[in-house]
Simulated assay, not measured.
Amino acid sequence: MMDKVVQKVLQKYQTSSCQQLANEKSQPPSGKKAQMMDRAVQMLQNDPQMRAEFINRVAAPIANKLFECGMIP
């Protein structure tokens, strides 16, 4: 299951434009997407090993994309 979540997160950042990411940041998720995110966050909060593995796999690609988009200094 974690592999699917990691792939989905990475795909989102790899395929989204900087404008799309900026728009998503300004609008909180709603509906089913918000529920899925809440469940994933809850799982990561409850399982430190899973959280560490998830962060190790997604942090660098996300940080690079945000840097390229000028969303982090």
Rank of each mutant, 00 (worst) to 15 (best):
M1A: 07
M2P: 01
D3R: 09
D3M: 02
V5D: 08
V5T: 06
V6D: 02
K8R: 12
K8E: 10
V9I: 15
V9A: 10
L10E: 02
L10A: 01
Q11H: 09
Y13D: 02
Q14N: 09
Q14H: 06
Q14R: 12
Q14G: 10
T15Y: 00
S16Y: 13
S16G: 00
S16I: 13
S16T: 11
S17H: 09
Q19Y: 15
Q19E: 15
Q19H: 13
Q20N: 11
L21Y: 04
K25V: 11
S26K: 12
P29V: 06
P29N: 10
G31F: 10
G31V: 00
K32M: 15
K32D: 08
A34E: 07
A34Y: 05
M36L: 14
M37P: 00
D38W: 09
R39P: 03
A40G: 01
Q42S: 09
M43L: 10
M43F: 00
Q45K: 15
N46R: 07
D47Q: 13
P48D: 11
P48Q: 11
Q49P: 07
M50F: 10
M50R: 13
R51F: 14
A52I: 06
A52S: 04
A52Q: 05
E53T: 15
I55G: 01
I55D: 04
I55E: 08
I55W: 03
I55V: 15
N56H: 12
N56Q: 12
R57A: 12
R57E: 11
V58S: 02
A60H: 06
I62T: 03
I62A: 05
A63K: 14
A63C: 09
K65E: 04
K65T: 12
L66G: 01
F67A: 07
E68V: 03
C69Y: 08
C69D: 10
G70M: 02
G70L: 08
M71I: 05
I72A: 08
I72G: 04
